[in-house]
Design a protein around this nucleic acid. Structure first.
Lengths: 348, 348
DNA sequence: CTGAAAGCGCTAACAC
DNA sequence: GTGTTAGCGCTTTCAG
């Protein structure tokens, strides 16, 4: 069944020791950079390593080592293919690589079961710590999946039921700022587009939206059902097929924003209906009109999460911390459109 | 120095065996799903596993197992943060997860040294195989970094000096098709924008560009120096500051395309100069005019690469294969603009 | 400064 | 069916 070359042959420390004419332990010392080796022996060992192309087996060393570190972290993001997660991932990688640490990563896809399976898989591979963008609303499972003491940093969404640092965007404040901006431009009928119930971040943004309306004494108009970004375009079309359509939209997520932009174009309303989106996206400045957004900073989130995680891995045992990464309103045009007079008349 | 809880305490198979009142080996059999265990013993083992929250240590089992598999693959892409790599990554992940395999990933950033370092790091972590988007033009180092027999699949770019399957976009043909398209719309002065020397894919696209010009008996205009996508915008501005500017652009990469779009806007030439870009990008259909592209299919590339890799991991030993993933011309408007009469007159 | 012996958690080979 | 023994490649401990 198994071919001879199925088992890849690699020289072991023992092989190196034999060719160098020293003991196994001396090789181990050289490989691990322990200074207590005579120079001429160390040189012989290095020569043998080169000759045999010896590479250490991290799995085996981890097994015996006191610190049990694999120099590998696990990262669970919503979807490594989307721009937000990809930018965050990249920032984590840069921090990790600077420390000689490598990254196991997976997409949780809004699926709590997948979240748990990935956490388990990374724990079985002995990740030194985890960065998790929670899909479910209960992370207490981490206590059973992870060895005691494994640090976890939550990112993008708050984790529940497990003690870990969190790195979060200022969702509520950012959304409030966005909606205030629309109100300042004269809008009174501002619709919210996003999954306001199921997803924690969207829920926070909905809260911020309600806060801003409340301050101005405005009522939220009836909101369309939206449980997945893929339905954003059709939900927007529906919204403008009803009576009393809004004069402005606040969209809670970048893919929702893009869906809304597509719908407004099809309706030829893109110059009439104001729009502010949460989360920036590439080319937002190149569409007509350019899209005003509340930009998050996924790179800062990834960087912060990674740094926090490495502090924990290095032994920091203080109580869980929260890092708030500020959002920034970027005025590009779509959010500065005034309420459109024609439609306003039509809906009165 | 090290705290007691620095070493995360996890129950071992031995602990499970003791609480279940069976031998270590029986536990091993249950964990590995071997059918030759009496049901009542298996039940006792499973109960002990649940009670102790036992999780197997993959590193230890890998050490002793005959197949030496870690159910982990390594993926080296250009930059996990860019849309092309991110989409490819996601497709690889889906194929891997369907097989219970997990993904170690890193960005090579056009840096051959980083490529080699990552390959080594993943080899030390005993990846079962590698998917590599080569940054350098020599992959012979893989023979020394990887255990003999470790399969490698090259993706996006051809690998050199190491035997592995390749998954490639039809770069030459796709570029030829793009340029033929511009010629068919009346263009005779078509500029190439991209790194035609250093990067293999861009080089292929440059070849395709030359082929199409040659067929039509056209000479390539002087091309601006462009060694990194970040300079695409300024290179485009320079191009149109010179005499005899082109009436059409062919851009070799999506970030170059975006830079060119930005530059044409600033020059208010975006409705006058035709543009076809290689590689699609999000919102290409929403800018004005919508951008005609030769779309690659990064998801198909990732899927194909992963499937090929798993065939090799499963023992397939046939000679290296090449998989060509077709590109598709998507007509959106920018590539269908006719040569602009005013500028044409000005340059005659 | 160097080496011999023990053992990390697990599976393979072979007994019973 | 089940258990015992050996040992994967490495680091630790401790003796020289």
């Amino acid at each position: 069944m198994r071919q001879p070359d199925d088992r890849a042959v690699r020289p072991t420390m023992n092989d190196v020791a034999r060719t160098a004419g020293v003991s196994l332990k001396t090789v181990s010392r050289v490989i691990n950079g322990e200074p207590t080796v005579a120079p001429h022996l160390a040189e012989r060992v290095r020569a043998a390593v080169d000759a045999l192309r010896y590479r250490p087996n991290l799995g085996a060393s981890m097994l015996r080592r006191n610190d049990r570190r694999t120099r590998t972290i696990g990262v669970l993001l919503e979807d490594v293919g989307n721009p937000f997660s990809a930018a965050l991932h990249r920032a984590v990688e840069d921090e990790a690589l600077a420390r000689g640490v490598h990254v196991l990563i997976g997409s949780v896809d809004e699926n709590p079961q997948r979240e748990r399976d990935l956490a388990r898989a990374f724990a079985e591979r002995h990740a030194d710590g985890l960065i998790v963008a929670p899909a479910g609303d209960d992370q207490s499972y981490l206590a059973s999946e992870l060895p005691a003491g494994t640090p976890v940093v939550f990112v993008d969404r708050q984790g529940t039921g497990f003690a870990g640092d969190s790195v979060l965007a200022t969702n509520v404040v950012g959304a409030t700022e966005a909606v205030r901006h629309l109100i300042a431009h004269g809008h009174r009928r501002i619709a919210f587009l996003g999954d306001h119930a199921r997803i924690a971040t969207a829920r926070s943004r909905y809260r911020g939206y309600l806060d801003a309306l409340g301050e101005a004494g405005l009522e939220p108009p009836a909101k369309p059902e939206l449980h997945h970004w893929s339905t954003a375009e059709s939900a927007t079309l529906t919204l403008f097929g009803r009576d009393h359509p809004p004069t402005a939209l606040f969209t809670a997520q970048n893919l929702v924003t893009i869906g809304a932009v597509r719908a407004l174009r099809r309706l030829r309303l893109h110059r009439d209906v104001a729009l502010v989106g949460f989360d920036d996206f590439p080319l937002a400045d190149l569409v007509e009109p350019a899209v005003t957004v509340v930009a998050q900073d996924p790179a800062a989130m990834g960087r912060t999460a990674a740094r926090a995680l490495f502090e924990r891995i290095d032994g920091d045992r203080q109580p869980p911390r929260e890092f708030w990464i500020p959002t920034a309103l970027i005025r590009r045009g779509s959010g500065e459109l005034p309420p459109h007079p024609v439609r306003a008349r039509a809906t009165l």
